[in-house]
Amino acid sequence: MATLKDFKGDQPTWCPGCGHFSVMASLQKAASEIGLEPHDMGVVSGIGCSGKISEYTRAYGFHTLHGRSLPIAQGAALGNKDVQIIASGGDGDGYGIGVGHFIHAVRRNVNMTYLVMDNNIYGLTKGQTSPTSQQGFITKSSPKGSVESPVHPLETALANGITFLAQGFSGDIKQLNEIVKAALQHKGFALVNVFSPCVTFNKVNTYDYYKENLVDVSTFTNYDKTDRMNAIKTIREKNGLVTGILFKEDKPTFTDLTKDFPEIAIAKQDLNLDSTILEKIEKQFQ
């Protein structure tokens, strides 16, 4: 059985103290704990600091394009449903340039996990305002403060029918590990949004900021994580600053609902067809 060490990939180059270290560690730990082998796992990442996770994790990786990790990951998940697929990226990648895919991935409900490292800033391009930056956020691209209101990925996901939604924080690796494990084990599209501070460029959304403001829904009395409306309400009331498993629902996935979806993984199908099959198709044109 694979151990945590087996999932260690290339040498990370993230800044010391970067929140992404915890996110990656929780993924690697969760993978080893649920008995995955590196070769049964595919990490498809977008572009940005977060996108490097497919370099630093030892698994089948695909470091792709900015904003396109989700459709590529869905293609890979549908191509071989026996492989555990994790898409990963940052707030700019997933909620900015790739947000169109995000909504559709949610409603398509392919069996996979989407791990977002949300640091409210564009890091790799050296500090510009991101889609999750708060109004008034000051960067080189918004020197007088950002005027746009931030996106609400959690509520968007819930509104579009997400079947597993969780939020974690790089400063609480124990909780994060549990969340990621549950996401990997969920049947359907699971979103884990992680507040993962950028220690170099974001002086607002820091570890201390999150420690002060985040609340864990498991501390609420009678929080019902199967209640979609309550999840939306809670997130709204807490201005998105909640952690834990916020919503979970058991629903048929895309492949369950696609009645003629092949039983055997598509990547394992024999491609050579008997000519009688082709001749039968040819007849429909006559």
């Binding site: 498809v44 695909f62 396109r68 590529i72 293609g75 998940a77 191509g79 492989v83 394992k268 491609l271």
Partner: peptide, 12 residues
């Protein structure tokens, strides 16, 4: 990109 993902997984 989905087709690229599927091709990466080994599907034509």
């Amino acid at each position: 990109t989905m087709a690229i993902g599927a091709a990466y997984s080994g599907v034509r």
